[in-house]
Computed example of a mutant assay.
Amino acid sequence: MSEVELVFKVLKEAGKPLKSKEIAELAGIDKKEVDKAIKILKKEGKIISPKRCYYAPAE
Rank of each mutant, 00 (worst) to 15 (best):
M1A: 11
S2M: 05
S2N: 11
S2L: 06
S2E: 09
V4D: 08
V4Q: 07
V4F: 03
V4L: 02
E5W: 04
L6P: 06
V7M: 04
V7A: 09
V7H: 02
F8A: 10
F8V: 06
K9I: 06
K9W: 09
V10Q: 06
V10T: 12
V10D: 07
V10P: 06
L11G: 03
L11H: 05
K12T: 05
E13D: 15
E13G: 04
E13I: 02
G15V: 13
G15N: 13
G15K: 11
G15S: 11
G15E: 12
G15W: 12
K16M: 12
K16L: 11
K16H: 14
K16C: 10
P17G: 14
P17V: 14
P17Y: 14
L18K: 06
L18Y: 09
L18A: 07
L18R: 05
K19E: 15
K19H: 09
K19F: 06
S20T: 13
S20C: 07
K21P: 00
K21V: 08
E22A: 04
E22L: 05
E22R: 05
I23H: 06
I23Y: 05
A24Y: 05
L26Y: 03
L26N: 02
A27Q: 06
A27I: 03
G28A: 01
G28I: 04
I29A: 10
I29H: 07
D30A: 14
D30E: 15
K31T: 12
E33T: 14
E33Q: 15
E33C: 11
E33W: 11
V34C: 08
V34N: 06
D35M: 13
K36H: 09
K36E: 08
K36I: 09
A37N: 13
A37F: 10
I38R: 10
I38T: 09
K39W: 05
K39N: 12
K39S: 12
K39C: 01
K39T: 09
I40R: 12
L41V: 13
L41E: 11
L41I: 12
L41M: 11
K42V: 04
K42W: 02
K42R: 15
K43W: 02
K43H: 01
K43P: 00
E44D: 15
E44N: 15
G45H: 05
G45N: 11
K46N: 10
K46Y: 14
K46M: 12
I47F: 07
I47P: 09
I47Q: 05
I47A: 06
I48M: 05
S49A: 10
S49F: 02
P50T: 01
K51Q: 08
K51D: 03
K51Y: 07
R52W: 00
R52N: 00
R52G: 00
R52Y: 02
R52S: 03
R52M: 04
C53N: 07
C53P: 00
C53E: 07
C53G: 09
Y54Q: 08
Y55C: 02
Y55F: 12
Y55W: 11
Y55N: 00
A56D: 01
A56M: 02
A56E: 08
A56I: 00
A56Q: 01
P57V: 03
P57S: 01
P57M: 01
P57Y: 05
A58I: 03
A58E: 13
A58N: 14
A58D: 08
A58C: 12
E59R: 14
E59Y: 08
E59G: 13
